[in-house]
Amino acid sequence: MAVHCTTLEEVRNNIDLLDQQIVALIAERGHYVSQAARFKKSTDDVKAPQRVEQVIAKVRGLSQVAGANPEVTEQVYRAMITAFIRQELAEYSVLDKADKPRA
């Protein structure tokens, strides 16, 4: 829960602490994304637009419960998901090439 800050320095220090936690969580999420590539059968499975929309709907709901701005949450998640899809496509490509026999 956010605390009431009395100086800009205090605000920035609290944001810095949150950034450390957010980056750690992004890294953890990224590890799961990397694992997901092993279970996908095609690049369409990686892109999974229906799953993206399910996640967006879920985080918008979570955002409202937490008192966050749902629009900001959606924009952040769409950017993050896009970046993770690029990462997963690259990993899927490597895995897909490794699975195909060489001529």
Rank of each mutant, 00 (worst) to 15 (best):
A36R: 08
E28S: 10
I81L: 10
R86F: 04
P101Q: 11
E28G: 05
V65E: 11
P70E: 03
R60S: 05
I85V: 15
L17Q: 13
G67L: 01
T43Q: 09
R86W: 04
C5G: 05
S93T: 15
E10R: 13
H4S: 07
I56P: 01
T6F: 06
L17D: 12
E71C: 00
V11C: 14
T73M: 13
R12G: 01
A103C: 03
I22D: 03
A24R: 05
F84E: 15
G30W: 02
S34F: 03
T6Q: 11
S93M: 07
P49T: 03
L18Y: 08
Q54W: 09
E91K: 10
V46S: 02
V3G: 07
Q54V: 08
Q75I: 00
Y92C: 08
V11K: 11
S63K: 11
D99G: 07
I22A: 11
T6N: 09
E74F: 03
L25Q: 12
L8V: 15
D19F: 08
D99H: 11
A57T: 11
D16Y: 04
R29P: 00
L25V: 07
V55D: 04
R78E: 03
S63P: 04
A57S: 12
A2S: 12
K58L: 14
T6C: 03
A83N: 07
D99E: 13
D45F: 04
F84Y: 12
K47P: 01
N14Y: 05
H31Y: 04
V94L: 14
R38H: 13
D19S: 12
E71L: 07
L8Q: 14
D16C: 00
S34P: 00
S93Q: 15
S93R: 14
E53R: 12
R51K: 14
A48V: 00
L62R: 08
A79E: 11
P70T: 02
L62M: 10
D44M: 09
Q64E: 15
A57W: 01
R60A: 06
V52H: 06
R12L: 15
Y77H: 06
R51Q: 11
V76A: 08
G67Q: 03
V46I: 15
V59T: 03
R86L: 09
L8S: 09
K97E: 13
K40N: 04
E88A: 10
D16A: 14
V76I: 13
A57Q: 08
V94D: 06
D99A: 15
Q50N: 05
A83Q: 11
A27D: 08
N13H: 11
Q54A: 13
N69C: 08
A2V: 08
A66H: 04
E91W: 01
V33R: 02
E28K: 10
E91A: 12
I56S: 02
Q21S: 12
A98G: 05
E91V: 12
N69M: 03
L17F: 05
H31I: 04
K97I: 07
R38I: 02
K58M: 13
K47W: 01
A83W: 05
G67R: 00
M1T: 14
V59Y: 04
T7E: 08
L89F: 04
L8Y: 10
A68N: 12
N13P: 01
Q87S: 10
Q35W: 07
F84H: 08
R51H: 14
V65R: 13
Q50C: 00
V46D: 01
M1K: 09
Q35C: 02
V23C: 01
L62C: 03
A24V: 01
